[in-house]
């Protein structure tokens, strides 16, 4: 089975709202896929479901054929929007932590990436700027040899140079067996990097197509199409 992610009638409801409504989605390996939609559309809910941080209300979600659990956490590498590393840890300690808990973690690669950024591993997380913290987290996440990388808003709130660095890291770490799922609302900056896009609006799947198909058929950029589909 080559699909890395399969959602069947996936629904997530809370007391007051339906975050995801009957999502049917299949993502193949070896792709860089954009999960696009406005804030509150359900993107983060989907990513949390993939990572086992939420439980579906109905329907199923499978990663490489397995329901979310310890087996899938082994093959999914998650970059949340927040700073989720303990503030008091030194960068080197966070690397030790990842090395300890993830078999697929490549310590050498992580240190190389840190080195290229001229980041002192002896610094504590709390002394770093927000942008630097995010880069450290990205390095940790991308230093794992996972099958599915879930990046939640990796380029939001960082300067253009940092954005380039992040995109560059994603591209350089690409491997044909793994899929990178990037959730963002900053489309223009990453269009050229995406193979496919998934549009989510108010919890429903609006579109899942390849970037080339859209550009050829519609003759417009994903950014333009997005603005049309999600017009307020």
């Amino acid at each position: 089975m080559s699909a890395i992610l399969e959602c069947n009638s996936l629904t997530k409801k809370y007391a007051s709202l339906t975050a995801l409504n009957n999502i049917n989605l299949s993502l193949e390996r070896g792709r860089i896929i954009g999960l696009l939609g406005p804030n509150g559309s359900g993107k983060t809910t989907l990513i949390k479901l993939i990572n086992g941080l939420l439980v579906p209300t109905s329907g199923t979600l499978k990663i490489a054929g397995n329901l979310p659990g310890t087996a899938t956490k082994k093959v999914v590498s998650y970059l949340p929007e927040k700073t989720y590393l303990p503030d008091w840890m030194k960068v080197s300690e966070t690397i030790d932590f990842f090395k300890d808990f993830y078999e697929d973690f490549d310590e050498k690669k992580a240190y190389e990436m840190l080195d290229r950024l001229h980041l002192d591993p002896q610094k504590r997380m709390k002394t770093l700027s927000k942008g630097t913290k995010e880069k450290v987290q990205l390095i940790l996440v991308m230093s794992r040899k996972a099958d599915l990388y879930c990046l939640d808003e990796p380029i939001g709130g960082v300067d253009p140079a940092a954005r380039d660095y992040i995109l560059n890291t994603i591209i350089s770490n690409y491997n044909e067996n793994a899929t990178v799922l990037i959730s963002t609302h900053l489309i223009a900056d990453i269009e050229n990097v995406l193979d496919e896009v998934v549009f989510i609006k108010e919890g429903s799947l609006m579109l899942h197509a390849s970037v080339d198909d859209i550009r050829t058929k519609e003759g417009k950029s994903i950014d333009t199409l997005f603005r049309e589909v999600f017009k307020c």
Binding site: N51, G52, L53, T70, K73, K74, V76, Y78, P80, K82, T83, Y84, L85, P86, F101, Y102
Partner: peptide
């Protein structure tokens, strides 16, 4: 702090039960 605030994103995505 470690399980139910932001660090929870780290702890609950580790390969542990």
């Amino acid at each position: 702090k470690n399980l139910l605030s932001d660090e929870g994103y780290l702890m609950f995505t580790l390969t542990v039960e």
